[in-house]
């Protein structure tokens, strides 16, 4: 969904079109993205249009990429540490 917003703003029904989901379910999903600060919704009359909050999105991607790598590396190191500890402790 976020990917499709990269090219510009779309209405909720345009966003929902390719998915086998109810408009209500899609709207709920958009609300989640809105709460995460990744999407902005603009209301013009009866049309709701969605726009990607590009700066926030880039920051979110940066944070998630950083910590995915950080914790993956830490867990590898934790594994080595536990193996070492068992060797030393003779367990």
């Amino acid at each position: 969904m976020l990917d499709r917003l990269r090219d510009g703003s779309l209405t909720v029904s345009q966003l929902a079109a390719p998915y086998a989901m109810s408009l209500n379910a899609v709207s709920k999903h958009i609300k989640t993205l809105e709460r995460a600060g990744l999407v902005r919704r603009e209301i013009r009359g009866r049309e709701h249009s969605c726009r990607l909050h590009a700066e926030r999105f880039a920051d979110a991607m940066k944070w998630m990429t950083f910590y995915t790598e950080f914790w993956n590396d830490r867990m590898e190191a934790l594994e080595e540490h536990l193996i070492e500890k068992r060797k030393r402790g003779g367990r």
């Binding site: 995460a36 944070w63 998630m64 995915t68 914790w71």
Partner: peptide
Amino acid sequence: MSGQTVVVRKRLPA
């Protein structure tokens, strides 16, 4: 509630 989330899984020999 949803902000940004990272999930990492690891099987550890311990």
